[in-house]
């Protein structure tokens, strides 16, 4: 089987995960590009016949973590949900876009676990191997990510809702 072909076929999934991980489209595609570059450089470490997808996600994780380390100071996390504006007659995707906001406010390591489970449908074991963490850590990060998202989506706690200024 030609790995090039297989890797090309995996690009959409890498892009989906990257988009959810970093938020911005251009930045996400940069992350995918760096991941692909890195994958070919490190390709001698890939063991034939093993899960290529999991391996690529591991490469992406490493690239991402290295980038975060380089920009740690900007990683400001706070528990307060940004004010949700009253939008004009666009109720259709309000929840989805609130989630968009909330997801970027999760700590990076929690977000990664949640996304691999929810988007990639990886088993907890695969997530543990992909991220190089114990399975117990996978479970606790998953639990914390979901609970944090839930409270953010409910507008709790202390989510200062902005009142409409007339």
């Amino acid at each position: 089987m030609d790995e090039r072909r297989a890797i090309v076929d995996l690009i959409p999934r890498l892009r989906r995960y990257a988009r959810a991980l970093v938020g911005d489209r251009a930045a996400a595609d940069d992350l995918v590009q760096d991941t692909l570059e890195r994958a070919w450089i490190k390709f001698h470490l890939y063991r034939d016949g093993t899960d290529l997808r999991a391996w690529l996600f591991t490469v992406m994780h490493n690239v991402h973590v290295n980038r975060i380390r380089a920009t740690r100071a900007t990683d400001v996390l706070d528990d307060e949900m940004p004010e949700m504006a009253q939008r004009p007659a666009q109720g259709d995707s309000l929840m989805v876009r609130d989630l968009d906001r909330a997801i970027v406010r999760l700590p990076d390591e929690q977000r990664a676990v949640l996304l691999l489970v929810a988007l990639e449908d990886m088993s907890y074991d695969e997530v543990a191997r992909t991220l190089g963490i114990p399975i117990g850590t996978v479970m606790s990060r998953l639990s914390r990510a979901r609970e944090k998202l839930r409270t953010m989506m409910l507008g709790l706690p202390g989510a200062a809702k902005l009142t409409v200024v007339k």
Binding site: R13, R15, R19, A20, L99, I103, L114, L119
Partner: peptide
């Protein structure tokens, strides 16, 4: 949340 996440990001696949 899982459903919303997929609704939000699955379109990237296309």
């Amino acid at each position: 949340q899982g459903e919303l996440l997929r609704a939000l990001y699955d379109p990237v696949l296309d």
